[in-house]
Design a protein around this nucleic acid. Structure first.
Lengths: 382, 382
DNA sequence: TCCACTTAAGCAACGCTGTTGCCTAAGTGC
DNA sequence: GCACTTAGGCAACAGCGTTGCTTAAGTGGA
């Protein structure tokens, strides 16, 4: 149901309102980190009255999601009470299914990993066997915090899929996964809500946490292929058919060399060819040109590079991309620079980002809930 | 204040809730057109209870925004009462300031133009003189419906600007407009709320009305230059600095011919060069390649072409763009086709779209209000 | 030491939201 | 003519953030 449309505009009732404001407060609590944040600062950040914030935080404290964290120095009156997120009140599992390995991580509400598992994986094996391995990993991790509620499982996979239904499509080289209902199958085996998304989207979501909410942000992943995850207005942009982020096969050279996708002059082909012949500067320049296209088309503020190929020589890629973007910005006379950085930690951000697929709704960052349940008068606001 | 951030996530209170739901209902009423829509269909479309819809529509009727429009045939019980939008309950003015002309249009709530003015304009004249002409046009049009409230003025201008402040920046060839506070100046002269945006964004907004809410959509304008307006998730995507939609200077041919922007191989340069030497098929193919990049990067469902150059040979451009996008989709094995059409009416959609800048908030389509007023506990939901 | 002042935060009453339960209006069909 | 179906309003209600006020807990000058 409801397929083909991005999000049905949903009417809002009082529970929706309550959930929306609570998520807003939780998001600010998370952003404040262990230092915490006072009620009045929460009021200022949300636009709600201090009294409303008092009521909301009282509920969060009753639910065990927030707690006192000391006092601020007085500024001439009663000192402010500081609140912090109780980060071990809930947990989420993130699963990264790659072509040759499985990484699973249990993260707390703050997004910090508290347990990690890694294992080799034959993605070409029968889907049911892979699924059994994945379910085992989830079970093992959940056992690490037996008395704490696990909100759900986020799964990051390579290649095309339908995010809404959690069904894979045409994973290159692995036809056995075509049409496989990964979400439903894993949900049944684990008894937990499951969300499935592309690996690049998961990574982008994790990396966007360092951004202020509402920022526009792109993650470019250069490994054996080239893909992108886009976060626009604080939310992962997936497009109508979850196909957004197809960055590697953007045409960058009209009638250029043939790419394995059948097209000509794709960024991925140009970039990997340069890398293959050892011309890393050219590879970085090609990537930078594509990034500059992206930045100007969407007016993006921050670009993060990642993936094994980038990790092999981070400096060269960051410098190359920064140079191309900088040159174009200078030509436009545009002022504020675009930040170009590199994602640390290899592939682990992908698994952590997968967990964020589950956590994001708690903090009001996405429009759809992991369990796909439909309340009358919808979930979060449009 | 609040610059540099897309939208501050805002807390919601009961007035916000009420406004949100009312806007949702109005949007459905508008989409239903003169045929109208029943209360139960509204309930189904919003997810609200029928009783809630009854209350909301009662308020809308009291405000003169909705009215009865007959009965549906019975399906075995009491026939449904049909409601319609009272399209002449409110009006908005759209202003299109172009390099050589000014078009002003008064539209009703349904977006239909009820009065149009056109005049030559010297955009290079002193800003204050241009502004006086614009203010006169607004006054004349408002007089056409003297007893009906005009909600505000939307202004579409070429080139870079800050949508939030309504200040122009570096309009190519017209340095006199640099930093000119167009929004504030016109608001003071007319006494009406004013919104300013890029011409391509305005056009995209108008054309996106035919789309279901939440759809992703791109408008490509090929005139003396090449630009794009992007509507993602039902909202105009402007980016952090209102710079999104810079489509003409996307690099499409690495180290290609020099463009007047200083770069090499820009789409605009390639496309206009082909057009200049009479090779329209090649121009269309270049435009199509850029469009295909866009479609795949953002997973866009519908592309509309417009502008004088396209208008000169609509068939050639539509066919060319459709071919390139179709070829790539076929290579991906992707199913549902992307719609490629052409915008009728020459430049008039831009002025009508400018009016939509004012109307959009009424129907819950954007995150910011025309008058820039700040309520405590913010406007629409994030 | 005391007292005026400032700032933070909770209590109680309130207005208003959508929801629920029930009833009436207005059709169809045996 | 009666049973049934469907639409839609009335009244009571739970629950949201807001308002007005009070209490808590500091600072700083007399």
């Amino acid at each position: 149901m409801n397929r083909g449309r991005a999000t049905t505009p949903a009417g809002a009732n009082l529970p929706t309102l309550r959930h929306h404001n609570a998520a807003l407060v939780l998001d600010l609590l998370r952003a404040a980190g262990p230092e915490g944040i006072s009620r009045l600062e929460l009021a200022d950040g949300t636009g709600l009255t201090p009294q409303a914030v008092s009521k909301i935080t009282a509920r969060l404290r009753a639910d065990g999601l927030a707690a006192d964290a000391g006092l601020r120095p007085s500024t001439g009156g009663k000192p402010r009470t500081v609140l912090r997120l109780v980060s071990d009140a809930r947990f989420a599992v993130g699963l990264h299914l790659d072509r040759d390995g499985l990484t699973a991580v249990l993260v707390d509400l703050a997004g910090r990993p508290v347990a990690v598992t890694s294992a080799p994986l034959d993605f070409g094996a029968p889907a049911d066997r892979v699924l059994a391995d994945a379910a085992d990993a989830v079970r093992d991790l959940s056992a690490a915090e037996p008395h704490r509620p696990v909100l759900g499982v986020g799964v990051a996979v390579p290649g095309p899929l339908d995010h809404r239904d959690g069904v894979l499509h045409r994973v290159t080289g692995f036809p056995g996964w075509n049409g496989y209902p990964l979400r439903a199958a894993l949900a049944e085996r684990t008894g937990l809500p499951v969300v499935v998304d592309k690996d690049t989207n998961a990574a982008a979501l994790a990396l966007a946490l360092d951004q202020p909410a509402g920022g526009d942000f792109a993650y470019l992943h250069l490994g054996t292929g080239l893909g992108a995850g886009l976060v626009l207005g604080g939310q992962v942009h997936r497009g109508a058919r979850t196909g957004a982020g197809e960055f590697g096969h953007q045409t960058l050279q009209l009638d250029g060399p043939l790419c394995e996708c059948g097209g000509r002059g794709c960024i991925e082909a140009l970039c990997l060819a340069a890398e293959a012949r050892g011309d890393r500067a050219e590879a970085a320049r090609v990537l930078g040109t594509g990034a500059a296209n992206l930045v100007r088309l969407l007016d993006i503020e921050r670009v993060v590079l990642g993936g094994r190929t980038v990790a092999a020589d981070e400096d060269a890629y960051v410098r190359g991309v920064r140079t191309v973007i900088g040159e174009r910005a200078a030509r436009d006379g545009a002022g504020p620079a675009v930040t170009v950085t590199v994602a640390g930690g290899g592939d682990r951000p992908v698994a952590e980002g997968a967990a964020q697929l589950v956590l994001a709704p708690v903090f009001g960052r996405v429009g759809e809930h992991a369990d796909g349940r439909v309340r009358r008068a919808g979930g979060s606001f449009g």
